[in-house]
Design a protein around this nucleic acid. Sequence first.
DNA 1: GCACGTGATGAATACGCATGCATTGTTCGC
DNA 2: GCGAACAATGCATGCGTATTCATCACGTGC
Lengths: 357, 357
Amino acid sequence: MTRSSNRSTSFDVAALAGVSQSAVSRAFTPGSSIAEETRQKVYEAASKLNYVPNSIASSLTTKRTNIVALILGHMANPFYTHVLHAFSQKLQEQGRQVLIFTVDPGAESDEAILHLLKYQVDGVILTAAQLSTRMTSMCHDRGIPIVLFNRYIPGSDASGVRCDNAAGGRLIAEAFLAAGARSFAMITGDPKGSTSKDRVRGFVERLQENGVKRSDIMEVEGQSSYEGAFNATLSIFRDKDRPRPDALFGINDIMAMGAIDALRYRLGLRVPEDLMVAGFDDIPEGRRAPYQLTTVRQPINQMIETTLSILHLDDPTHRIERGIDRPISGRLIWRNTIPVPPDHRWDTSKAESESVV
Amino acid sequence: MTRSSNRSTSFDVAALAGVSQSAVSRAFTPGSSIAEETRQKVYEAASKLNYVPNSIASSLTTKRTNIVALILGHMANPFYTHVLHAFSQKLQEQGRQVLIFTVDPGAESDEAILHLLKYQVDGVILTAAQLSTRMTSMCHDRGIPIVLFNRYIPGSDASGVRCDNAAGGRLIAEAFLAAGARSFAMITGDPKGSTSKDRVRGFVERLQENGVKRSDIMEVEGQSSYEGAFNATLSIFRDKDRPRPDALFGINDIMAMGAIDALRYRLGLRVPEDLMVAGFDDIPEGRRAPYQLTTVRQPINQMIETTLSILHLDDPTHRIERGIDRPISGRLIWRNTIPVPPDHRWDTSKAESESVV
DNA sequence: GCACGTGATGAATACGCATGCATTGTTCGC
DNA sequence: GCGAACAATGCATGCGTATTCATCACGTGC
């Protein structure tokens, strides 16, 4: 069998239905002026011929592909697979599809941008990846809206949607302090990404406001992955002379999970009895019985809605908003990796408890 | 700013470079007849105008989009996110991109197929989803190759690549038997999917060959997810009168992990001391310290290569092979959820041990 | 020096559909 | 009963590129 053997076109359908090609086109275009009767005739003919409109050809005239590019830095963090899934679902409901561009972790996405420009995508979502400002303007010049998901580029006019990571870091700090912690460790993610930096900054600032010395806050890099955090945690305890921290902040949940397992299975420590731990993201995996991770929930659905609204995918004027930065507040989720301070009435407007699995 | 404001075309570049549009096209088409000098002139002009070839337009004539559709049933099982990632990477190396179609778990992919036909994709990979034979022939008729990844449709002429799941189920059965188990439980996945059914079949057959009665093999459904398996495991032990099984086979790793956590954190049982457990897939998550799951490794890279080779994406003759079924053998990976039988020299041609994290 | 082959080039056309424009038939208001 | 407004339809054209065909320049072999 040979490819494209018998793909029928709108002309074929038109001939069979006894109408013009325009009529066929209109039959498949919602809102166009066509008699219901004609439409039915067209549908019948189309169905006989197994006709499916060629959206490649139609995008040539409409200048819309109904394709959205999603640039993904890595998938070591399940958070981003949930993000991918959510975007795909939401966009599909709108009749759009996601075109995936994977980028080596840490590498710039410039080459990916060059490729996606060829596909004339209607919009670009970039997450867990780097991007040069040259490329964002490249997109803007061509009228392609781009929004950074959970990332922003200082000084760029690219729009971004993100959790208020600094505020989230502060929430974790407050929880640790309320539980009585006095010395701290952080396992950080990608040092080039704004996400990790902001969480660290908020965390450290809040601790310092409370009189914690910077020297009481250890910092070690965990490569944004379970395995990286696992090893990073071991390295924290390698130096026997150093006092053990009371609290460990995994800059995202998957790293907190790696840290917890290292503590339990390699270092023989209990969580939270010997050491309290917190994460960030609130991925479903962190809710599982072994972890029941106290964390900051990223309002992922709200972030996705906001992202899509900034993208203006079906704005007839095709206006692109630039330089928008929408930080959305996260919420502290109390679970079991920080002991609940007995005498401390936690402000329920900022946090909530939750039962698990 | 308005969209498509100033996208330059090959005519613009041609004008600036002082050549014809054909020359521009040829400059960007490897292997076409054009003088190196001309090509450089074109490149310079293109770079000045920020010109990027419009592959939508070019696919109109070439009839190839360099887009491959990936239909994904769900992402509750991390195995499939690894599959997605691997496909995306491999295809990107070939200058192709992945267009994602997500489908409700258990639902048929027919609607997705209808959508992807519009995009004139070069090929379709279907995984973790159902599909009617009507749709596979729909693709074939239009010359679009489709291959089922880790799934097959009996009686269909759709090609498929999969792990030899029945043989894998037998490997698990043998391992359990060697470790002395006499009564068994299985947590099964999607009852409509061939994958789960085959693993169950191989497992049960092998046990029965060894004289195990069918009544000593419990079966409960876990919806292919961690949470489903967690709850399914609890339900196994709900009936106090029923004797506790010696061994539990999670039809895939993520379910085995859910089962292990239910055993440990709800039922107070130890793995493997009180109950041995095995999974299937060998996802990286199963290698983590808390699990160290004994499992059957799916040769994922080999499966992906085979899938792409069946797809014949750059076969100039566009021939589609139909009805291919390529089962690839899995390998038993010994870790720590089945006690190694002391007196039993395990056949190392079929299995291997491995250290963890 | 001539016929021929070869590589480079441009003009013209096709790809499949959407849409502006003109035309026709129909309905409504008065 | 007449003109206007409107819905339905067809025709023709354009979208941006690849490709065929014809042409041309050039070099090769004899």
